[in-house]
């Protein structure tokens, strides 16, 4: 489901990413957000799965490394970055601001992924 929407949004991804120069409001996952939505990305076999994830604002996304190799999660413009995640380590980031966030693994930079944050019901931000 999410992947299908992601494909439809693919064309808008780059332009939105390039426009995202304004400081994004990305807050850490505090207790106040504990009841908010959650989503997850699995890091497995040198891939982020799903490679593109669409979430609603306020969603906390958790990446979990299932590989023997460590990986990291680093937003392209440095808006968020994990430390190296060992096997079974997790990293969470809460997304408040709608937009597109492209990220990669700083240890294996060919591994890339994308989070699209948009209000429910919308199919595209433009």
């Amino acid at each position: 489901m999410l992947r299908t929407r992601a494909v439809l949004l693919g064309g808008a991804a780059l332009s939105a990413m390039l426009c995202a120069a304004a400081p994004a409001v990305i807050s850490g996952g505090g207790p106040a957000l504990a009841a908010a939505k959650a989503a997850s990305v699995k890091i497995d076999n040198f891939n982020f799965t799903p490679p593109t994830l669409v979430v609603e604002p306020g969603t906390t996304v958790t990446w979990t490394n299932a590989d023997d190799s460590p990986h990291s999660v680093r937003e392209m413009d440095g808006r968020f970055k994990s430390a190296a995640l060992d096997t079974d380590d997790s990293f969470s980031q809460t997304f408040s601001a709608p937009g597109q966030y492209q990220y990669f693994c700083s240890i294996h930079p060919r591994m890339v992924g994308k989070i699209i944050v948009q209000p429910a019901g919308k199919t595209s931000s433009n």
Binding site: M76, Q102, F104, H108, P109, R110, M111, V112
Partner: peptide
């Protein structure tokens, strides 16, 4: 200064 692999091989 890795080039993330959005368009490249991540060299």
């Amino acid at each position: 200064n890795f080039q993330p692999g959005f368009k490249s091989a991540g060299l």
